[in-house]
Nucleic acid binder design. Structure first.
Lengths: 166, 166
DNA sequence: AAAATATGTCAGTCATGTTGACATATTTAA
DNA sequence: TTAAATATGTCAACATGACTGACATATTTT
C-alpha cells in the first residue's frame, strides 16, 4: 500500500480528486468519532466540545469572535453555550472596556471535561503523526491550509498560530 | 507563514495536536461548504451527494455495502435514497445471483447532477494540491490514512484504491 | 418447512443547524 | 442629550440528517 497508492504523480486529476476527497471524508470521520462514553453520559455533543475548545484556547474570547470561528448563528450558539454556562463549565465575565461584551472563560471543571473529551483524540492524532512521519505532517498541514477559503485563510491561520508558545 | 508555522519539529505534542485538529476542522469545513446553488435549488443536501458519489464510484453497489461505507442505518439511508430513485438519479436493479439484493446504479441524469455538484469541489481541491505541491499531497494522504481507525483501514483503503484506472 | 438474510417502511426522537422578530443594555455619534 | 449603532440574548418555527424499535416482504439457505 506504500508504493503506488501514495505516488501522487502517477495519478490523474480525477484520481487525485477522488483519493483526496475520500481520504478526507473517512479520515475526518474516524478522527472525530470518539468513543461516546464521556460525552453522551453527560448529554454533551460535538457542539459543546467545539465551544469548550475554542474558549479554552483563547480565554476571554468574546461571543462575537466565537460565532465567527464556529461560523454559526447566535441562536444556534445560544442553546449549547447556555447549558455549558448553567452546568458551570464556562464562565461569562462582563467586558471591562465595553460592558456589553461577555468574555468567555473555561472553568476548572470545564477544563477537566475538555481534557477527558480530547484525551482519546490527542492520542489518535499523535499516533497518526508518528506513523506518517514529520515530513508527511508538514504536507498534511500545508494542504489543509491551502484548502481554506481565500477569504478565511489569513484570519484562520492567525487564530491557529496564536499562543503557540503556551 | 511558510517558515516556523509548518516546521513540525519545532512543535510540542500539544501544539501539533492543536494545529492538526484545527486545520483539519477548518479545512474540512471550507472544503465541503460548497455554494448552495445547485443543491439547495433541487432540494438536495450532502447526504444525497455522498450516495451519488459512492454509487457512481462503484456501479452495481449493494445497499448493504453502501450502508457500511456511509456508516449509517438503513432507515437513515432510506429517505435520501428513495428521493434519488424517485427523481430518476439512481436506478435499482434486482441482483442476478441473489434476487433479494438491489444493485445501485447512477443514471445519466444522476451523473449530470453529480458532476454539477462536484465541479466546484474538484477545482477547489486540485488548486489546493497545486499550491501545496506533490510532496505535500503525499503527506496529506499518508496522515489521513493513518487517521483511519485500525478496524477500518484495510477495507477503506481498498475501497479508495478501487478502480483507480478508470 | 424453518431459519437466516437483504431490503424496506412506519413512527417517534434527538442534535444541530437555519430565519425572523424582538428585547435589553451599553456605547457612539449627531 | 437624544438618537443610532452595537453586543448580546431569546422566542418560535422549521430543516436536515442522524438514531432506535418494531414489523413486513421476498428470497435464499439449512
Amino acid at each position: 500500500m506504500t508504493d503506488i497508492f501514495f505516488n501522487v504523480k502517477k495519478h490523474s486529476d480525477q484520481q487525485k480528486f477522488f483519493k483526496g476527497m475520500e481520504l478526507l471524508y473517512f479520515g475526518y470521520r474516524d478522527f472525530i468519532s470518539w468513543p461516546d462514553d464521556v460525552l453522551h453520559e453527560l448529554g454533551f455533543g460535538r457542539a459543546h466540545h467545539r465551544i469548550l475548545h475554542f474558549v479554552s484556547r483563547s480565554p476571554g474570547l468574546k461571543v462575537a469572535e466565537l460565532l465567527k470561528l464556529l461560523n454559526i448563528t447566535k441562536q444556534s450558539l445560544s442553546r449549547v453555550l447556555s447549558t455549558l454556562v448553567e452546568k458551570g463549565h464556562i464562565r461569562q465575565d462582563i467586558g471591562v472596556q465595553d460592558r456589553r461584551q461577555r468574555l468567555l472563560y473555561v472553568t476548572e471543571q470545564g477544563q477537566d471535561l475538555l481534557n477527558k473529551i480530547t484525551e482519546h483524540q490527542k492520542e489518535h492524532m499523535l499516533k497518526a503523526f508518528e506513523t506518517a512521519g514529520s515530513q508527511s505532517v508538514e504536507g498534511f498541514w500545508k494542504v489543509l491550509s491551502a484548502l481554506l477559503t481565500d477569504e478565511n485563510r489569513e484570519e484562520l491561520l492567525n487564530q491557529i498560530n496564536k499562543d503557540m508558545g503556551a
